[in-house]
Design a protein around this nucleic acid. Sequence first.
DNA 1: ATAATGATGCAATGCTATTGCAATGTTCAT
DNA 2: ATGAACATTGCAATAGCATTGCATCATTAT
Lengths: 139, 139
Amino acid sequence: MTKDIEQRLKNKNINPTAMRLLVLDFLMQQNTAISLNDLEKGMGPSDRITLYRTLKTFEEKGLVHHIDGGTGTTKYALCLEECDSDHHHDLHVHFYCNNCKETFCLPNTKNPEITLPKKFRSEEMNLVIKGVCDLCNPD
Amino acid sequence: MTKDIEQRLKNKNINPTAMRLLVLDFLMQQNTAISLNDLEKGMGPSDRITLYRTLKTFEEKGLVHHIDGGTGTTKYALCLEECDSDHHHDLHVHFYCNNCKETFCLPNTKNPEITLPKKFRSEEMNLVIKGVCDLCNPD
DNA sequence: ATAATGATGCAATGCTATTGCAATGTTCAT
DNA sequence: ATGAACATTGCAATAGCATTGCATCATTAT
């Protein structure tokens, strides 16, 4: 098992240290995007800054991506698509539940095509939809 | 002139104080969304917190909207559509220029329709495209 | 005139993100 | 094995934005 996780790090050219294995393992258990705080609470006692840098390293190497979408705090989630250091394929839409405050990746959605005004060139796109998620929806 | 601005405040049920007239006047001169810092620098000497609360009041009353889009700082711009206290018509897309760091409203764009997974209900949408704006584009 | 309400200004705080630096661990050539 | 070079970690500290509490001043209604 640990081998899998280790290999996943190596595939991305990330040195598989103990801390990183733990963080990746934790991330793989999540089904929502998590904040640095969530990570800190979820893991055993560990240094916040180290976790911060671990996430940053993961992101640089294309293992996780972060979502900003106006919740005040940055959230992180494992990349589902094949990303690499150069190109983050921010292809999917994110969803923030106003009720449970969770942020979800919606891997089955695609970022839409937007026609920009003349001479505007698009490089990336951040689309966050806010509303009520399936678990919080009474219907 | 001042009459116009004053009326615009009254239309939104905002008490037209001197400070508010100044802030609205300043906002009307902008063609990009501005941060609290921009506002503070752009206006004469005035209290940062008062400006903060002025923007907040404006937003509550549907006169301005804010954009979050992952630039770290919140930016504000006048509402172009008809918004009211209850419903902010966040209908248009925003654009952040990686070069000049300005945030633009793109009033001629519409937020796209996204098909959400079952039982997800959308309430609002925040779409920020990052890239290079017309003025920074060499072509 | 006075009470009540709203607006402003100052002080202070909380929180997230971020950097500097020292200590520790790891790798590799000799 | 030894030491140099480098990567990782942990602690301390800082920066910056957002936000609240409270006192003061202005405005309005009675």
